[in-house]
Design a protein around this nucleic acid. Structure first.
Lengths: 127, 127
DNA sequence: CGGCATCCTATCCGATACTG
DNA sequence: CAGTATCGGATAGGATGCCG
């Protein structure tokens, strides 16, 4: 197989035209927010995170952590021991990001019933 | 055609286990937020929205609008005229949603440079 | 233990053509 | 004008295996 182009190019796009897209891409994916919230409580190791989140694959946890590290939301610390130990913790940037996110989460909790309601109404009347 | 299963099942999931997922799914996709922000300024028709957003396909605009309507973020009004006229506007729910979103957008603007910085540093040192 | 490479699937999304 | 139907390429994400 002439693997000119890897299936997953892990390189980073530096210049998004729209700043908000960077943020949306990070919280839009399935796992980033879960990881950040787990790390808000305490510093965690790779497998601890996996257990904490529950149903994430190692693949996705690995990618999610790498992206969050690249974007400066989390800090990755390697302890040169055997067996190897790697700890993840929030950076100041990551912590500050969770502040506006909290207001959004609160809104989501408060209005979830309204959304569900709208869906039911739509299904009854419209469809 | 024995269309047992449509290629795209447009049916709605009513019960998300996690409320925030509903919101994240809506703002995580490429277009919903752009549509909401366009409608924040004024009520718009289908093709007006398409022009306003610029590079969205009719396909995606149609699906995005339908989901936003299902979830109660926007209101769709059909005027029985020829040629047909359909107007979209924010509901109270949609408008209230944009409030917490604003704080997130402001955060994104303020911290975009920090994210870009982190990426450059990561590329230089890590990779 | 941490985590990348591989394979595979489901879904996203654009382009286009067609309908009322 | 306001969409829907269909096709096809790109991408996200899960399962698994290997390796330091």
């Amino acid at each position: 197989m002439s693997n000119e182009k890897a299936q997953h190019d892990e390189s980073v796009e530096f210049e998004q035209p729209c700043p908000i897209r960077d943020v949306l891409d990070r919280i839009g994916d399935q796992w980033s927010l879960l990881v950040l919230e787990a790390l808000e409580i305490q510093t965690l190791r790779f497998n601890e995170l996996a257990r904490e989140i529950g149903d994430i694959s190692k693949q996705m946890l690995s990618r999610t952590l790498k992206r969050l590290e690249q974007d400066g939301f989390i800090l990755r610390t390697i302890y040169p021991e055997v067996p190897p130990r790697v700890e993840y913790q929030l950076t100041d940037l990551g912590r500050s990001f969770l502040v506006p996110m909290q207001t959004l989460i609160i809104w989501a909790d408060s209005n979830h019933h309204a959304i569900c309601n709208a869906r039911v109404n739509y299904a009854i009347s419209g469809k």
